Computed example of a mutant assay.
Amino acid sequence: MAEKAQETTFPIAGPVNVFKGLLDELGGMFLFFVESVVLIFAGWGQFSKSVRQIYFIGVQSVSVIALIGLFAGMVMGMQLYYALSTFGADGFLGTGVALSMVRELAPVLAAIMLAGRAGSAMTAEIGVMRISEQIDALTIMDINPKRYLVAPKMAACLISFPILTAFFNLIAMWGGWLTGVKLLGANEGVYWSRVQDSLDWADIEGGFIKALVFGVLVCTICCFEGYYTHTRSGHAGPEGVSQSTTSAVVKSCVIILAADYVLTSLLW
């Protein structure tokens, strides 16, 4: 007698399960973040590890941030000059470049670039240690893996992101001057005068607040994805690490943009 073919069914998660999974993930990330921040102050042994991470996340990202900031400022200067000159308001070029960079573009673009460069490396590093059971070995030796691996990265992100954002601002304003003044003929004195007069401390402070928040988000998401590679990716081995790394970068970029909207609504 011929056997009846069995139908393969694929369960579809309902809205309740999706919402429950989202809450579970957000709660896990929040507890992961709190524990990581507390462990930053666990002892002087963290200082040397944090310095190494600052060098990797901050110093080695300077060239990338400078390049992106230069071209972002040049494009912004060119576009604003053409738009403002239509109404005879090209004297406000410095205002447009300064405010757009300090308030929005510098924190967001710097954070996205750091998520792609440093965040992916953090996820891959911790993910490889997870699948090779090095994290389990640390636990067996009574070494807190989060204190050893995550806390120095969190401290480095809290220091590096605001500094790199400030550097991005300086390079971007110089890029706007390069195209708006040197290439298109705007008045140099008016440009720098508008830059100085249009920026208030609230604008600069808001940009640094965004940079701090983005640094926390990028570090938390990337380290969380790497730390739980074995349970979250659904795959073991190198494939799991690659999926966790991709997921970390994508989530970081999306959350950065969403957080930027929320922070902009609250700060201005």
Rank of each mutant, 00 (worst) to 15 (best):
A2T: 12
Q243R: 10
G226M: 01
C219K: 02
M1L: 13
C157E: 02
S193Y: 07
V254T: 12
P145L: 08
S63C: 14
I131Q: 01
D203A: 08
D200V: 15
Y55K: 11
L170R: 13
A248I: 09
F19T: 14
V250I: 11
V249P: 00
M154I: 02
C222M: 07
V102Q: 09
I171N: 03
E188A: 07
S120V: 02
V62E: 04
G88L: 05
L170F: 12
S244Q: 03
V37P: 02
M101C: 03
V241K: 00
P11Q: 05
L183E: 14
L257Y: 11
L149C: 13
G28K: 01
V218F: 00
L84H: 05
A118G: 08
G96N: 04
G96V: 00
A83N: 15
A236M: 10
V150Q: 02
D90W: 04
M141D: 11
L138P: 01
Q46K: 05
W192M: 05
I68S: 14
W174F: 12
I54Y: 01
G116Q: 04
I68G: 06
S242E: 11
A2Y: 12
Q46D: 12
I140H: 08
A111Y: 02
L267M: 15
G180F: 03
A89R: 11
G28Y: 03
C222P: 02
L212V: 10
F30K: 08
A156L: 04
W44C: 14
N187W: 09
G43C: 03
S160T: 12
A259R: 02
R117P: 04
D90R: 03
G45P: 04
A258V: 12
E104L: 10
K20T: 09
G237N: 08
K4I: 11
S193V: 11
V190R: 03
K210H: 04
I143R: 12
K20E: 11
L26E: 10
A72I: 08
S100M: 10
K146W: 07
C222A: 11
L164K: 00
F168A: 05
L217W: 01
F19K: 14
I256R: 02
I131S: 07
N169L: 10
F33V: 07
V262C: 14
V150A: 06
E188Y: 05
A156I: 02
V18Q: 13
M1T: 10
A111N: 07
A124F: 05
T246G: 04
L138T: 06
L199P: 00
V190G: 02
I135F: 06
V262A: 13
M113G: 01
V16L: 09
V97D: 04
